[in-house]
Each structure stands twice: as structure tokens, then as C-alpha cells.
Design a binder for these strands. Structure first.
Lengths: 151, 151
DNA sequence: TTCAATGCAAATTTTTTGCAAAGTC
DNA sequence: GACTTTGCAAAAAATTTGCATTGAA
């Protein structure tokens, strides 16, 4: 995956988004940090590097990128939107203990045809996109908890 | 489906929720209106019948019922939570044109094993619940639109 | 009378909006 | 110079909180 400024700039231009410094930096941040951050996190992580950055610009940018289809808006949290530059079809799992969000590949589940969910027609409804959210306790938290109860 | 006050009251009590009038009415409303309403809608629909109702109580109640597992909180919308008293495993489809949310049964999709998503262990992560959200244009809006373009 | 449920108002949080200033071609 | 992008402050919208009041066992 090429996350150079040039590559990012090209992607933006190919989608008709003029590659301003702020947009490049925000998209680059999301490309290199697959933690599904919210607007506040993106802003705080970048404002030191780009002191002129405002949160409004982060809001504007993620909205534009999502509308153009190069960014996913996740509603896995009820309180805030999170963003994912990885737009290939995959599943999101949120640990209800630590709050981390993990990517899960379709092929890890023994469920055939999941990818057909998008672009299907069901009862006359035309599907354009899908989101699968899983909730539970992640590996790390399970381990941490079992260690704690052992002592 | 029994949506009598007695039946609702029994369900609440079986979950350790004391069946106050407000809770009964809110749950009853959600049982009989499968439109996946948000808090504001529930409040506005009930406040005429129960003038003493406050929005805080609606918030408190849906949170309690969701925590006790007899209500689903849907995050299909990025801006607000919606609620569903139908807790049997199914999929939600939101029309991006009219905003309506439709229930989709698992068996309408030719995907075997979807129900296994919940209660699975994936890469060491323990799954407890899942939400599948589909987005697109609903049958009604497709028809409406094609009529419009025909004229 | 004790404890839980409720209502109100204020606070908090997330997101949007209006508009002026700055930047770009 | 025209058009777009950005920043700031205010507004809007959703939700939570503190606390006093009400209500029920």
C-alpha cells in the first residue's frame, strides 16, 4: 500500500477531490492508522503537526471522502462516528470491554456468500452497501481477565 | 404476540424491571410499532396519552430495557439511536432515500450460517452479539422514482 | 418510611451552519 | 478575480447528569 503524499494526492484527484494539504494529511493519517478513529482523535493527532487545522475541516474532509466512496463511516458506536480508510469488504468487531475495534476478514467466518450482501436485491429493495458489526470481548481482554481471576 | 398490559408487565418483571406505567407504555409502544423509532418519536407519540412523561424517562427506559436484553439499540443511523422490540436475529435495511428501516429475515438471503455469527469465537475474540445493516433504495422509492421518470 | 422512578433544568458531547478570511488556479 | 477551502464562533441536536420531587411497597 502506497501512502506517499503523491499516491494519496493521486487518489484524491481521481475522485475529483482537490488534494489540499489538510485533506492529504487526514487521509494519510487514516491510511496509516487503521484504528478506526473518530473526528476528535484525528484532530488531536494531527493538530500538532498542522497547527492551523480546525475540527470543522476534519468534519468536512471525512464527509467528503465518505461521500466519494474512499472512506467508510462506521456507526459501530452509538455516540460517535468512526472512520476507516480500508474500504474492501470486511467486518468490524468492537470489544465492549476495551473499546478497540478489530477488522475481521470475511473468510475467517465459515459463511459463504457474505460479500453478495452488497449489490443484492432483496424483496424488491436495492442494496448498495452493508455493514456488519460484531460485539463481544476481545482476545486481549479475555486473557487479561483470566489472569486477574487466577491471582 | 401478546401486547396486553399484563403480558408486558410480566415480561418486565421476569427481567427484574419493576413494571411502572411509563415503562409498560414505552415497551408496549415499541412492541406494537415496529418502525424502529428514536427517542424523540417515542416521546412525541406517547406524551399526549401520558402528559407527565418526560424525555429523560424515555432515555432511562430504553437504556434499561436494552441492558436487560429485551430491546435492541440500532446504530443504523449515524445521528441517533433507534430501538427495536423485536429481538429475534434479523437484519435491518435502511432506505437512504426515504429513511425507512425494514426488517429482513435471514432466510431471505441465500447465506447459510449467518445466525452463527453471534456466539462465535473468531481469532480468540468472543462474540456476544451482532448487527447487520444494509443500505440502499427501498422498493417503494424505486417505484416512485421510475414513475416520475416515466412521465 | 424507605427506596426506586421520574421530571426538570443544566451540562455535555457530537455535529452542523453561517460567514468571513485565506488560499488556489 | 473567481472559486474553493478553511477557521471560528455560534447553533443545533442527541444524550447525560444532578438533584429535588413523586410514587409505590
Amino acid at each position: 500500500m502506497d501512502t506517499s503524499t503523491k499516491a494519496i494526492s493521486d487518489i484524491l484527484q481521481s475522485k475529483g477531490i482537490s488534494p489540499s494539504l489538510h485533506r492529504i494529511k487526514i487521509y494519510q493519517y487514516l491510511m496509516t492508522h487503521r484504528t478506526h478513529p473518530n473526528v476528535d482523535t484525528i484532530y488531536k493527532e494531527l493538530v500538532n503537526e498542522i497547527p492551523s487545522l480546525s475540527k470543522t475541516t476534519v468534519y468536512n474532509t471525512v464527509k467528503t471522502l465518505a461521500q466519494k466512496g474512499i472512506l467508510l463511516e462506521l456507526t459501530i458506536d452509538s455516540t460517535e462516528s468512526r472512520y476507516d480508510a480500508d474500504i474492501h469488504p470486511h467486518i468490524h468487531f468492537r470489544c465492549t470491554s476495551c473499546g478497540n475495534i478489530y477488522d475481521i476478514e470475511y473468510n475467517l467466518l465459515n459463511i459463504k456468500g457474505l460479500e453478495k450482501l452488497e449489490r443484492a436485491t432483496i424483496e424488491g429493495h436495492q442494496i448498495h452497501s452493508s455493514h456488519i458489526y460484531l460485539y463481544g470481548i476481545c482476545k486481549n481482554c479475555l486473557t487479561r481477565h483470566s489472569k486477574k481471576t487466577q491471582n
